Simulated scan of single mutants.
Amino acid sequence: MTTSSTPNGDTATKVGFVGLGTMGEPMSANIAKAGFDLRVYDEDAGRAHAVADRIGASALDDAAGLAECDVIVLMLPTSKIVRSVLVDDSGAGPALRLPLRPGTVVVDMSSSNPQDTLATGEVLSAAGVHLVDAPVSGAKERALSGTLAIMLGGNDDAAIARATPVIDAMSAQIYRTGALGTGHAMKALNNFVAAAAYTAASEALISGERFGLDRQTMVDIFNNSTGQSFVTLNVLGPHIVDGAFASGFALPLMTKDVKIAQAVQAAAEHEAPVCAAVVGALDDALTELGNVDHTEAYNYWNLR
């Protein structure tokens, strides 16, 4: 493994980072801040160069430059896009799209479908490349502070050990979930729980206000009662009561994640009517509103 020295004298792997969006930019910034030799890549080359200048990294104009890296982190919208970066499916059989060296560790921190993760992992494994799934929770605020919660799945303990110092730079807590794919399954289930809380809280606010209750008063009571959740503490006040509608988490992504959770539950042969109801509510809002912040679903539901 190629190593370089960090400012404090420790050895560090060469790290590549793909996907510099709302979450990816602050996550990559924390990797650079930790002293790693970081190269960033984004489909938008101009963005890659601008981010690299801001965080003290090198920008790659071609994804092939990732082959120089020992650990490659991906933070992308879907598992299909993750696969398109890593795997060439245009030939007789799937093959690596990038000239990655055996022993390279790829860390998919996206909210991916675990079945897709397993399929992509098989292609990488055949080439001696290790795939680790390490999706995150904590939204943009914790991405900025480097205190994300990580759900870590993988089959090779040595590969996980090599990736862990990089992941540590972005996180406050790493939860080892099991084999490859379990991290992505856990992330989908977590986001289902959050989406269910948001859907239920929205229904409560809408019906309560129509009954004559004040929205802020309801939020205050939720937050000091058994209805308290991440949603009531962090979403309802700024984005519903104050009308920001700018959580940074898009409605299509939330809907996608809950559908992944539904697929996980189906694979486990578990009847999940609450999940089905949440998928239906989100799908209705998505059909009407399109690519908006997920908090704007409230406005659609309030009109029904």
Rank of each mutant, 00 (worst) to 15 (best):
V123N: 01
I221F: 10
G208H: 05
L152H: 01
L205H: 06
V107E: 03
S207C: 15
I160R: 13
G248H: 07
A158Y: 06
V51W: 03
T255K: 03
G65S: 10
G212D: 06
D156W: 04
Y300Q: 12
P165H: 12
L251Y: 04
V278R: 01
T2L: 09
E209N: 15
I240R: 14
P102G: 03
P114N: 05
D70F: 07
T22F: 06
L96I: 01
G35D: 11
R142L: 09
S112A: 12
D214F: 05
V85G: 05
S4H: 08
E25H: 07
E68W: 02
S5R: 09
D88T: 06
P114E: 02
T6Y: 10
D293R: 11
T199G: 04
V292P: 07
T120Y: 00
I240N: 15
T3A: 10
A45R: 14
L253D: 08
A267I: 02
S110A: 04
Q216R: 15
A134P: 01
D168R: 14
D70E: 15
Y175C: 15
R54K: 15
G178F: 08
L286E: 11
A163G: 13
R97F: 03
A45F: 12
D62K: 11
A267T: 09
T147C: 03
L286D: 06
S79A: 12
A172K: 15
M75L: 10
S207N: 13
F192T: 00
A12D: 08
T255A: 10
D61C: 13
N155R: 10
R101T: 02
